[in-house]
Computed example of a mutant assay.
Amino acid sequence: MSYGTALSACRALFVRDFSLVWRQRGDALNPMLFAIMVVVLFPFALGPEPNALARIASGTILVALLLAGLLSLDALFRSDFEDGSLEQLVLSPHPLPLLLACKIAVHWLTTALPLLLAAPLLGELLYLPRSELPVLLAALALSTPLLSLIGAVCVALTVGMRRSGMLLALLVLPLYVPVLIFAAGACNAAGQGLPVLAPLLWLGAGLALALVLAPLACAAALRISLS
């Protein structure tokens, strides 16, 4: 019996997951709407003073996008686990880490990428200095896929549990903090006119390491959860 190539399996998985996201596109917009609501509410709490908002703009956007990403994280494997397709994925003859990397990529493209594209608008709402915007976008481009990869491993560990939302948050947040620190450090350095390359390189190194190790860890965690 022929199972096709790994490339065809990845292509079919991309088509399937994008189709599911399109059918539930209202749910897919929730993270972006949440991030916009958080950013819009900050001026009401702190006042409309541009200088005060500009000082916290980059940190506020980073935290808003981080929390928005948590909203959709639990759904990464949940629907596949409930309909049994996750077990079929694990039993597939194709490399499981590669298939999981495809699912993580779809999750990033449908949740984090729209937030990344909305970052300039959110920056305008908080009077983000124009000099900090390129650094913020670079930090988000490096940190958001890293957060998706880290979060996928934690989701794989808890996918077999009911009401795992609180446990997932407890697992994920301590791992997200270093990423947030480096991303915010790059933005703060840009605001003070200091070199920004070092924190961005640390984020890039973390992303390169996660691209290799996270799918492998995610596959091992799924096998443990489903055994």
Rank of each mutant, 00 (worst) to 15 (best):
M1R: 06
Y3N: 14
T5C: 06
S8D: 12
A9I: 03
A9R: 04
C10K: 14
F14R: 11
V15C: 06
R16I: 07
R16L: 08
F18N: 14
L20M: 09
W22Q: 15
W22E: 09
R23H: 05
R25V: 08
R25L: 03
G26Q: 08
D27Q: 14
P31K: 01
P31L: 03
M32L: 15
L33A: 07
A35S: 13
A35G: 11
I36L: 08
M37C: 14
V38G: 00
V38N: 05
L41G: 01
F42V: 05
P43S: 07
P50S: 11
A52S: 06
A52I: 05
L53D: 07
I56P: 03
I56W: 00
A57R: 06
A57N: 01
T60W: 03
I61M: 11
I61W: 06
A64F: 01
L66G: 10
L70R: 15
L71W: 04
L71R: 15
L73P: 08
D74L: 02
F77W: 07
R78K: 14
R78I: 02
S79H: 08
S79Y: 07
D83S: 11
G84A: 09
L86H: 15
Q88S: 13
Q88P: 00
V90L: 09
V90M: 08
L91T: 12
S92L: 04
P93C: 02
P93F: 03
P95T: 14
L96G: 05
L100M: 05
L100W: 08
A101P: 01
A101I: 03
K103F: 05
I104R: 09
H107S: 09
H107P: 10
W108G: 02
T110M: 12
T111S: 08
L115C: 15
L115I: 07
G123S: 10
Y127E: 09
L128K: 09
S131W: 08
S131D: 09
L133Q: 14
V135R: 01
L136Y: 01
A138G: 13
L142D: 06
S143C: 03
L146T: 13
L147A: 10
L147Q: 11
S148F: 00
S148L: 05
L149Q: 04
I150Y: 06
I150K: 10
I150W: 06
G151Y: 00
G151E: 10
A152P: 01
A152C: 02
V155K: 08
L157T: 10
L157W: 08
T158D: 09
V159Q: 06
M161T: 15
R162I: 07
R163M: 13
S164F: 10
S164C: 05
L167P: 07
L168A: 12
A169K: 11
A169F: 10
A169S: 10
L171T: 10
V172E: 04
L175C: 13
Y176S: 15
A184E: 03
A184T: 12
A184W: 06
A189S: 15
A190T: 07
A190N: 08
A190R: 05
V196F: 06
A198P: 00
L201D: 01
W202H: 05
G204F: 00
A205G: 12
L207C: 03
A208Y: 02
A210Q: 04
L211K: 13
V212T: 10
V212M: 04
V212R: 11
A214F: 02
L216G: 04
A217M: 02
A217G: 15
A219H: 00
A220R: 11
L222W: 05
R223V: 02
R223P: 08
S227Q: 14
